[in-house]
């Protein structure tokens, strides 16, 4: 397993390098200019100066290698410095966002907490809702409960988050006045009151995203349960005279969870990626909102860095999913 993991990690390096170049070229070739958000009242020569000051007029490969160096050397060195007080990165330029002139990693650092808390919670809530629904729907296939679950999943799938989110805002914030609509990123949880405040402000985005997540996962759970429910070994377990509980929870569920766990693991990078629409709608201003904002502003360093980090996470969690599969399913061995 260890050699397998190491081999996969080594293989990932060239893959990721190629991915980084492809992303860079794609982002660079994408239409739009970092100046497109600047009002028309700023004359062209001033725009040109601004572009030069950003280094955006350099040839693409110069910029790519600069980015590579910054990403793989300057930024780690900078992090190392700030932890151990060394001066490795002294005088080196960090990756700067064109839009805000702030270091990209500072922005990511500011945004990661709320993304992880809000989107992560939504994912967790989604899973916690989805699993029981999926399990029971499969166990009582075609029952009223299952039909309800199907309806729920269909709604979760097909209703876009901007719609469900707006609906929740109108119901829970405008009519009922229970929850705020704008997430306060500056809120620090220090006591019960602020903790309650945090729960309240997370409620709407978590509900919106949780619904969407639960829909997908409950379907996976259900179909995986159904696949296993008709397997011979389940009949064997019944024939053994095991109680229904044991049959469902021990035999069927444990086997059904294998693919579901993998799907869940593969979905984790999307937590880091944030949920662009939901974040925007509720002002969570996490990574997703940063990405979309950067794309709109043609903020190449920001888009490039985020996209690359997502690529790394996706590769990583694919590996984790494979390893998990190996751990959960004795039939699979990596040597």
């Amino acid at each position: 397993m260890l050699t397998f993991t190491l081999r996969r990690l080594l293989l990932a390096i060239p893959t990721l390098l190629v991915i980084s170049l492809v992303i860079f070229l794609l982002v660079d070739l994408a239409p739009g200019s970092p100046m497109s958000e600047i009002p028309l009242t700023v004359p062209p020569d001033v725009r040109q100066k601004m572009i030069e000051a950003l280094g955006a007029d350099q040839p693409v490969f110069v910029r790519y290698f600069l980015w590579l160096r910054q990403f793989f050397w300057v930024e780690p060195a900078y992090a190392f410095d700030s932890w151990f007080g060394t001066t490795l990165a002294e005088g080196e330029q960090r990756i700067l966002s064109w839009q805000s002139r702030s270091p990209v990693f500072t922005i990511i650092g500011q945004r990661l907490p709320q993304t992880l808390i809000v989107i992560g919670t939504a994912y967790l809530v989604g899973i916690l809702i989805a699993l029981p629904i999926g399990i029971y729907s499969a166990y009582r296939q075609y029952s009223l409960f299952d039909q309800g679950g199907t309806l729920f999943a269909m709604i979760g799938f097909s209703v876009p988050t901007f719609f469900s989110g707006t609906l929740f805002i109108i119901i829970f914030a405008v009519w009922l006045g229970w929850f705020p609509t704008k997430y306060d990123t500056q809120l620090e949880v220090v006591d019960w009151a602020t903790f309650w405040e945090q729960i309240r402000q997370m409620a709407l985005p978590v509900m919106t995203l949780g619904l969407a997540n639960a829909a997908a996962i409950s379907r996976y759970m259900r179909s995986s349960m159904l696949d296993n429910m008709t397997m011979d070994y389940v009949r064997t377990a019944r024939a053994k005279g095991m109680s229904e509980r044991t049959v469902v929870l021990k035999h069927v569920l444990r086997n059904s969870l294998i693919p579901v766990v993998t799907v869940i693991a593969l979905g984790i990078p999307s937590i880091f990626g944030g949920a662009i629409i939901t974040e925007n709608l509720f002002g969570v201003n996490g990574i997703g909102a940063a990405l979309i904002g950067a794309i709109h502003a043609s903020d190449l360093p920001m888009v490039q860095t985020l996209a690359f980090i997502f690529a790394v996470l996706i590769v990583l969690f694919n590996l984790i999913a494979d390893i998990l599969y190996g751990l959960l399913d004795p039939r699979i061995r990596y040597d």
């Binding site: 609509t181 704008k182 925007n280 709608l281 002002g283």
Partner: peptide
């Protein structure tokens, strides 16, 4: 004073005109 950014025009307007958060 605090300036919270992000979202869309509709959401901003709502936060002032309907929920009174801002």
């Amino acid at each position: 004073a605090v300036i919270k950014g992000g979202g869309d025009a509709e959401g901003s307007a709502r936060a002032v005109m309907e929920t009174g958060e801002f």
